[in-house]
Amino acid sequence: MQKKMSNSLDSFDPASTSWNMDVDRYKNMVKQDIAQASAIFHYIDKYEYMHNLSKNKAGKIIKRRIRKTKRRNINNRNSRKYRKYRNSTRRTH
């Protein structure tokens, strides 16, 4: 048992172990940086997408125009119903 332990202690190299730890630490740091930067770029894409959606001004104007025309048509139809009474109502006033 002791022999085994001394063998393992002989094979232990502090310099190489610390180097491995450093490599692992740097790898983790690189991974973290990549993940963070990627998340930021996804966020920017989302912002640009939402920004472009709200930019559809032409569509809004067309919708408003359709709404107005629809209202005008309804008003015309309603006024047309009372056209035949126009003269008689004028006479009474």
């Binding site: 740091m29 940086d33 963070q36 930067a37 930021i40 920017i44």
Partner: peptide, 16 residues
């Protein structure tokens, strides 16, 4: 935000 992400990318490149 874009500048920050760019810095992170450069940092990652250096560490690599």
């Amino acid at each position: 935000q874009a500048i920050l992400a760019n810095d992170l990318a450069i940092n990652a490149e250096k560490n690599e």
